[in-house]
Design a protein around this nucleic acid. Structure first.
Lengths: 220, 220
DNA sequence: GTCAACGATTTTGTATACAATATCGCCTGT
DNA sequence: ACAGGCGATATTGTATACAAAATCGTTGAC
């Protein structure tokens, strides 16, 4: 193992929170996890601290660490924030993007199109991610890029679902093309708006799916 | 002590990094800090992890944690990101702000004006902070608000300095008034632009001061 | 029967002990 | 004299032991 054990434990726990194996409010028992991972409490506690720092769990002093699944309201807030940050990245990228990066965007879009045609959701998802990462990077601000990546990653399990909606992949594809068009035209405000709405729609589609699947889970 | 010891240690270390007592690249020796704080290594290690999580230090496995002071480039990136986020908050707040909050903004501005007239930089700083916090809050997105507060806090030691520039307080005051005017007019784009530039100028002024004070520190 | 208080138990937070690995200095060989 | 390797030392990472505090159950009083 290249990284220290506490890091791997943190990753494993993170994954389990993402998949929903750990429900909201569930206490993460240090001893239980320690025995489960076959380690002492020390590395488990380090991992838990990492979860708390990333906002995936809450720490109540002398009480323990409790997983904190975002509710519908917070999820919509996170999607809105992501949309705004993407918009910012898009506006800055319009002014700063390189020719090469524009090429990478179009290449990713081409592969997205292929995925749409073969109805390959996984492939689309992968290329879509690449597309967005290029835009974050081309905003020309490493700090902003890192923040965008952080939130992007946090929303990953929720973003993925909405691609299952009928026709969403093709719609997303058209939005990508509009984004590239605005970037090529050097129209920063149009690029910002296109990206903002592209992500906002993802949030709305996700919300739609959630309210369909479990309509009772819409409060708090 | 209400909070656990590791938290207070983290706060103390954070403060010392902010004040520059710990320089960039300096190793934070667990044993040294433990003896200094009169505790064992365990709470010190927890505190160090918190610093790493907040980006104020870096952790090299089996090597230790090293303080990571942002260089001029990263600082400008952080100011630019802050400017963009404030712009976003401003745009959203224009659509969502309450009458009461508008009143609070104007009250804060009035107190700012008083501080300008008595040349009270500390007072100005305090009311300026309140002003911005109201805008974050009125964006109507708790998640975004928390992100804004986090970055705002991170930039605190650097934001404060620029107020010492001659005439900066009065200029900042005028910018605040333009922001409130845009908010009252319901012109979201104008409010966004005004806030973006207000913060961007802070970054520029800070940069100006830095290049004056230590012109050799402008690389990396 | 219910509520409160007290003690036992569990669990977190901290200290210390141990293990593993990196760093530094010395020594030897060329 | 300098480079490389080997060992001593120091430091991080993990395990265990201990302390403090919260929870839970029981018991007793009303």
């Amino acid at each position: 193992m290249n990284v220290k054990r506490a890091d791997t434990i943190a990753d494993a726990l993170e994954e389990r929170i993402f998949t929903g194996e750990f429900g909201d409010g569930e206490r993460l028992d240090e001893i239980r996890l320690a025995t489960e991972f076959g380690v002492s409490r020390t590395p488990v506690r380090e991992a838990l601290q990492r979860l708390v720092a990333s906002g995936m769990a809450r720490h109540l002093p002398r009480r323990g660490v409790f997983v904190r699944q975002p509710g519908p309201v917070e999820l919509m807030e996170m999607f809105e924030t992501m949309a705004e940050i993407e918009g910012v990245c898009g506006r800055l990228a319009t002014l700063r993007i390189s020719e090469q990066a524009l090429g990478r965007l179009e290449a990713a879009n081409t592969r997205c199109q292929a995925a749409v045609e073969s109805n390959d959701a996984d492939g689309y998802y992968r290329e879509n991610e690449r597309f967005h990462h290029v835009i974050y990077q081309q905003a020309g601000n490493s700090f902003l890029e890192q923040e965008a990546l952080r939130l992007h990653r946090r929303l990953k399990p929720f973003r993925r679902i909405q691609l299952r909606l009928r026709g969403r992949m093709a719609q997303s594809m058209r939005e990508h093309q509009a984004i590239v068009a605005a970037l090529k035209a050097g129209d920063a405000e149009r690029a910002a708006k296109a990206l903002r709405e592209h992500v906002a729609i993802q949030g709305e589609k996700f919300h739609l799916l959630m309210s369909r699947l479990k309509p009772e889970a819409n409060e708090v």
